[in-house]
């Protein structure tokens, strides 16, 4: 059990480090610009007609406070951190007076749902198919599946989502191409809403799965075809162990270990993909909100979403790390 404790502590340390560096990067990024966000906002809001200079001075002061740009650099840095810790990024300018954190809280469940479902689906499907393809490497069907999965793999999320949009929105319009669910339904646990939710999620999930599948497929296939040549597998085959059992508990389980690490490492990239997919399909999650915020010039909202994304993704990685010892018992006894 001591091994597990040490393992947990190191992973926790890594989690803290990721958040720390991530927040620092966003601080550096926001302070690396020659453009003053306060002046930019003032310029945008005084574009129409003259405003008296006193009002502008008051506005400048309150915006500075809002954006946490008061005082010296170190003071700003501390303000930045305080906001992150209490998760309060002030009111949103584009949806005033709704606070940024409320907007994010409303969008987050959509993103999390989309991400979890598509990631789990992709991971299981890719590993299953890849494992089978590595074990039965003569099968034509599996080879064909591999070619299809690999063909989509190198294409970025945006292009795949866009192609799906063209096919199902333009050439063969049978699926809804935008939104998270039909708007006029009562939100809650009822059948029409849930089915609408499901139908609306088909295209975003499909595009995420299509892009993600190839990586897991190829990784698992090469892992399995290496494990298959190990002595203990040959021994089990000679010993007459059922082939399905060999595949499931002798080969697949051992090959899954690096794939779990891989999942933790690629979560950030998957999250990027989900953001883009949301934008293409108008899915009401974090990504959609982020891009709206940029177009609306909403500084606090953009910063809030970036920060929350960093924390959320690293928390998810930490969660996967926690589950890792279940699969690989060596961690517990080390």
């Amino acid at each position: 059990m001591r091994g597990y404790g040490v393992y947990l502590l190191t992973r926790l340390g890594q989690f803290v480090l990721v958040v720390f560096i991530g927040i620092n990067i966003s601080f550096i990024v926001t302070h690396s610009t020659p453009i003053d966000p306060v002046e930019a906002t003032i310029a945008a809001s005084t574009m129409f007609g003259a405003v008296n200079p006193e009002a502008i001075a008051i506005m400048r002061q309150s915006l500075k406070e809002l954006y946490g740009l008061e005082g010296g650099l170190f003071e700003q840095y501390l303000t930045f951190w305080r906001r992150v810790v209490v998760l309060d990024f002030g009111p949103s300018l584009s949806a005033f007076p709704a606070p940024v954190s409320a907007l994010i809280a409303r969008a987050l469940p959509w993103t999390v749902g989309l991400l979890v479902v598509s990631t789990v689906l992709t991971w299981i499907l890719g590993n299953l198919l890849g494992g089978l393809a590595g074990y039965y490497h003569q099968s034509r069907t599996l080879r064909f599946a591999g070619v299809v999965a690999m063909a989509f793999h190198p294409i970025p999320y945006y292009i795949v989502a866009f192609m799906l949009l063209i096919v199902f929105g333009y050439l063969w319009p049978i699926l809804p191409i935008s939104g998270g669910a039909q708007i006029n339904l009562q939100r809650g646990f009822n059948l029409p809403f849930l089915s609408s939710l499901l139908i609306h999620s088909i295209l975003p999930i499909t595009s995420l799965v299509l892009v993600g599948l190839g990586g897991w497929f190829m990784g698992m296939r090469s892992l399995v075809s290496n494990v298959v040549t190990e002595d203990y597998v040959t021994y089990a085959e000679l010993g007459g162990v059922d082939r399905r059992r060999i595949l499931a508990s002798y080969v697949m389980r051992n090959s899954l270990v690096p794939q779990v690490t891989g999942l933790a490492m690629s979560l950030g990239a998957i999250f990027n993909g989900a953001i883009i997919t949301e934008q293409v399909f108008g899915y009401p999650g974090i990504g959609h909100l982020l891009i709206q915020a940029v177009h609306a010039g909403d500084y606090s909202l953009v910063l809030g979403i970036t920060t929350i994304s960093i924390i959320a993704v690293s928390a998810a990685v930490f969660l996967i790390d926690l589950l890792y010892p279940l699969l690989d018992p060596r961690v517990r006894v080390r």
Partner: peptide, 18 residues
Amino acid sequence: DTFIVIPLFPILVLFYFV
């Protein structure tokens, strides 16, 4: 590992934004 995990897209969007 930190740089592997951090979601880059929001950071790049933030970069553009500022």
